[in-house]
Simulated scan of single mutants.
Amino acid sequence: MTTAPFQKRIEWIDQTRGILFLFVILCHSKMATDWMKNIYEPIFLTGFFFLSGYLYKKRKIADQLRNIFNRLFIPTLIYSVLWGIIEILLTQSFNQGINTAINTAIGGDYIWFIPCLMLVEIYYTLVNYLSNKYVNIALIFIALISFYIITKLHINRGFWSWDVASYAIGSFALGNIFKPHLLKRRKAITTIFIYLILCIILGSIHLLKDIDMHLNQFNSPLAFLITSILGCIAFTSIMQYLPINRYIAEFGTYTLLLFPFHSLVLKLFIKILPQDIPFFSSGILLLMTIITCFFIGRYTYKYLPILAGKKNFL
C-alpha cells in the first residue's frame, strides 16, 4: 500500500492507488450497484498487490526486511493500539478495548490487508533471495495451487491473513513480471475494453457475485481468477497514459493509513446524515467520507509521519 522510503514516487502509480482506494470506500459503503461491483471487485484489492510487485526492487535482504519492518510491521502495531483506544472510548469497556487491540494485531477486520501485504513481501523477499531465476513463474504456479486449495477447503481468517497472502503473492509476482512489459496504449485500450465486456457477461450470469477476498469467498473462483489477472494488467497499463489529477494522486499516497480507519469515518457520516433521500444522501456520504479521509491523510502524514510508516526504527 505504500512505496518504500528509498523509492521516488511515481505519480501515475499513486493515482492508480487513489482510484483503487476509492473503490475500497465504495465497496464498504455498500452503495455500489451490481454492475459496478462486477467491474471493480476483481481488481480493487489484487491491484494493490500487483502495484507493490511492480514497484519491487531487489536489494540486500537485510535492507528489504528492515524496510518491511519500518513501513508495515510498526504501523500494524500502532494501528492496533489506536483501534483498542477507539473501542474503549466507544464502549467504555477497557477489556473490550484490549481484546480489539489484540484481535486487530493478529489480522482482524480493520487492518487485515496491511499484515497480509507484509507477509507477501516477506515471502517474496526470502524466495527471491534464495533464487531469482524463474522465481515469479514459480510463485504464480504456487499461488494458483494455494488458491485452489483454500477455496475448496473454505479456509479463512488465518493469522495475519496468511491464507490470502498465500495466493496474493501471485498478483505480486505478476506485477513484477509486467514491470518492463506493461501494455502499449493501443493494446491497453483494447484489453481494458475486453475486460469490461467480460465482467459484464460474467456478472450477468452471477459468476462475479459475492466476491470477498478477505474471507476467500468467490461465487466462481475461476471467473475471479481470470478477470483479476486480466483486469490488473489492463487497468495498470491504461493508467500510465491517463492525465494526472493531483488530488487523486495525493490521495493514493495515504492508503496505508486510510485502510484501517476509513470505515470509522464512513460509519460516523452514516449516523449523521439523513437517510430519507437515498440517492442524494448516498452521494453526499461518499463525498464527505472521501474528503475527510483526504485531509486526515494529508495532515497525519505531515505532522505524524510515524503513523504513515515513514519513521525508521531499525
Rank of each mutant, 00 (worst) to 15 (best):
Y134R: 14
I19T: 10
I43C: 06
F159Q: 07
S281N: 09
Y148N: 08
I177W: 02
M288W: 02
F279T: 14
K133D: 12
W12T: 01
K60A: 03
T33V: 14
T76N: 14
A223I: 04
Q96I: 07
L257W: 10
F295E: 11
T3S: 15
I192Q: 11
H28F: 08
L22P: 04
K152P: 06
H28I: 11
W35K: 14
Y195M: 05
V164S: 07
L126D: 07
D34W: 14
Y303K: 05
T100V: 05
T125L: 08
T104H: 00
Y110C: 03
Y79S: 03
Q96H: 06
I86Q: 13
H206A: 11
D63E: 09
G18F: 01
L286C: 02
N156A: 11
G231H: 04
N70T: 08
L285W: 08
P180Y: 13
R186E: 15
N128T: 12
D210E: 15
I291G: 05
T191A: 15
I19N: 05
L257P: 10
G84K: 07
T292R: 08
N70W: 09
P274K: 04
Y303E: 09
Y40M: 09
I137T: 12
I78K: 00
V135W: 15
H181V: 11
G53P: 00
N216D: 09
H206C: 06
P243S: 05
A101S: 12
K133M: 06
H262R: 08
I244E: 10
M1D: 06
T76E: 08
G53D: 03
S161F: 06
I114G: 03
T227G: 08
K30W: 15
R71C: 13
D210R: 06
G108F: 02
N99W: 10
T227N: 01
P260R: 07
C116H: 02
H206E: 13
K209Q: 14
P260G: 01
I74E: 00
S146H: 09
R246N: 07
N99R: 13
L207F: 15
F235T: 02
N67D: 13
D63G: 04
S263Q: 14
A308Y: 10
A249F: 06
L130T: 12
F295A: 04
L242G: 05
D210L: 11
N67C: 06
Q64L: 10
F224Y: 14
Y167L: 02
H28L: 11
W112V: 01
R66M: 12
I211F: 09
I226L: 08
L45Y: 10
A105G: 10
K30T: 14
I114K: 02
I74R: 04
P305K: 01
L196V: 14
S263R: 12
I201C: 08
S228Q: 06
N70R: 07
T300C: 15
K310A: 07
C293G: 03
T91W: 02
T227Q: 07
Q7N: 09
